[in-house]
Structures are given as structure tokens and as C-alpha cells.
Design a protein around this nucleic acid. Sequence first.
DNA 1: ATACAATTGAGAACAATTCTCAATTATGCC
DNA 2: GGCATAATTGAGAATTGTTCTCAATTGTAT
Lengths: 155, 155
Amino acid sequence: MPQHKNHNPACCCRKIRGFGRRITPARHAVLDALSARGEHLTAEEVFKAASRHYPDIGLATIYRTLELFTKFGMVNKFDTGDDKARYEFADGPGAKGHHHHLVCTSCRRIVDYNDFINEETELLRRTEEGLANKYGFKINTHILQFYGLCKDCAK
Amino acid sequence: MPQHKNHNPACCCRKIRGFGRRITPARHAVLDALSARGEHLTAEEVFKAASRHYPDIGLATIYRTLELFTKFGMVNKFDTGDDKARYEFADGPGAKGHHHHLVCTSCRRIVDYNDFINEETELLRRTEEGLANKYGFKINTHILQFYGLCKDCAK
DNA sequence: ATACAATTGAGAACAATTCTCAATTATGCC
DNA sequence: GGCATAATTGAGAATTGTTCTCAATTGTAT
């Protein structure tokens, strides 16, 4: 499975600009940090990774930037039951594609899976529609995560 | 739709005892607080409710008790995207039955639904099985939540 | 090059949760 | 019923993840 950068700098910059925001070294550093392969990073981890390339960056900027990117739909913020938010690139050109998470409650390993994803998506779509009708909600997103013990931790 | 207490005191006590733990007024108060109808309470809310009947109870005890009950599978702890854990009675005699949540991201209203739940459960079961095989996980639980705007907030 | 608003880093502030510890209490045993 | 003992408790301090404040800096349109 080839690893390719999860963000396309040109595309991201265009998007940021599109929302009337500026391109800054801090924002580049956050994009680079998140594009490390297969990552689901906490803010602290993004901070460490970004600091390597841009030592002056502050933690507050990390949070602000992640919040901004999340608002723009470039990044997904999610939570796996410990008390830290995690971030990953959202769907889109160059990203991992629609997937859900399988989380080990012991070692916190997170597996992205997209097996069964078509069936899931189809059912979720129908459910969404049904719920929207019945309860009058305008549904925007969903979360689906499985929790358990990975092979190593199950011993 | 008849409202019945969501916890059966005798049953809960038996369970607590079964785990070698003691029955205390604080634990009773937490059970009572959680059994108010349709509730998905934060720790703070459980604290307030429990305090009404047992004014000496401390917040730390609330957290400890909720953690304990969660460990025993009597209570579900979940999160709806604000930064507070929420608690509800888990499945079991007297409980609400298996359901998922529909969350309004504006007013934080939480709707329990169990429409479509059979299809969902069936798909989730199969997915669980597939994931368990493919990734060697021993899966214990899942979370499925829909996020959107309720009728009032959509305006 | 200039002007101005957006962005930044640092540290203080905050909110939810967990920890510490001495005092209290539920339970098994006589 | 009373005793011994370990579990449980309340209070407040401590911790942790995250957000806020503010003066200094910087990206961008002109």
C-alpha cells in the first residue's frame, strides 16, 4: 500500500485562502504534522511534531489551528474514550477515504477500517433519512466506533 | 408511554454485592438520580440530583460511583462533543433497551432512538465479527451517534 | 513600501476530573 | 447486638486538557 502525503499543500492553501484566512508557517507546520502516515494525533502530539520543523510554535496556536481546520472540514476531530481529542485529515483528495475506527481500550491503538464501509454507509444514510423525518433533525455527521482489545492486549 | 423507574433497587444491589462491593447511601442516591426519566446526566447533574436526597454527598463520590457502575456494566458513559461525560443506565431489566443517540450540536438535546435498531444491530454484529477476524480484535462495544440540529435550532 | 487586520507565543485562567488523606461506615463474624 | 476490618466517604488540593488574554508580529491587499 503506497504511502502518499495526506495533504496536498496547494489544495490546502487554496482552501484556507478561500475562507479568507492567511497562510502562515504555523499552519504549514500543523498540516505537515498531520500528514505523517496513518496518524490520529492528539494536540500534544501535533505540537511535538510541528515543533520539530518550527520550534517557535506555541501550543495555543496548535489548538487554534486545529479548531480552524476542523471548522473548515479539512480535519476531523474525534475522541476515543481517553480524555484527549484526536485529529486526522478529513475525507478529500489525498486523504484516507471514508473510514471508521476500531479502538483498543488498553493500548489506545486505532485501526482505520473501511471493510463493510459500503453497507455501513448505505444503512447510515437510510437511518439518517429516517431520523431526520421522524425527529425533525437536520443531521450533519455521525460517529461510529468499535471498542475492544487488540490482539496483543487480549492476552 | 408509561414511565417506570429505570433501576430496580433490588437488582442493582444484588449486582453491587455480587462484585463484592458495599451498598451505601451515596450509591443509592446515584442510582436514584440516574433513574429520573429519559436522562443523560453529566456528573454535575447527577451531583445536584443526588444532593437533593442526600445533601452530604460529595462530587468526588459521584465520579467514583459512576466509574464503578460503568465498570460493572450497569451504566453507560458516553460523550456528545461538549467536554462533559454523560451517563445513563445501561441495557438490562428495567432499562431503556438498546438504543443509539441523536444529538443536537446547538442545544445539546439528546434523543434516544431505536427505530432501525434491528437493522443496525444486525449490521453492527456482522461488522464486529468481520473486524474481529480481520484485525484480531476482541470487540466489546461500539458507539454510534448522529449529530445535527434539532427542529428548534435549525431555524 | 505601507497599513491594517489576522495571527501569534507565552502564560494565566478555566473546567472537568482525579487524587490524597483522615474520618466514617457497611459487613462478616462472634 | 457489638467488634474488627477493609471499603467508602467528603473536602479540598492537584492534575490535565483546553481556552483565553494581550501585546508583539506578520501576511496580504493596495
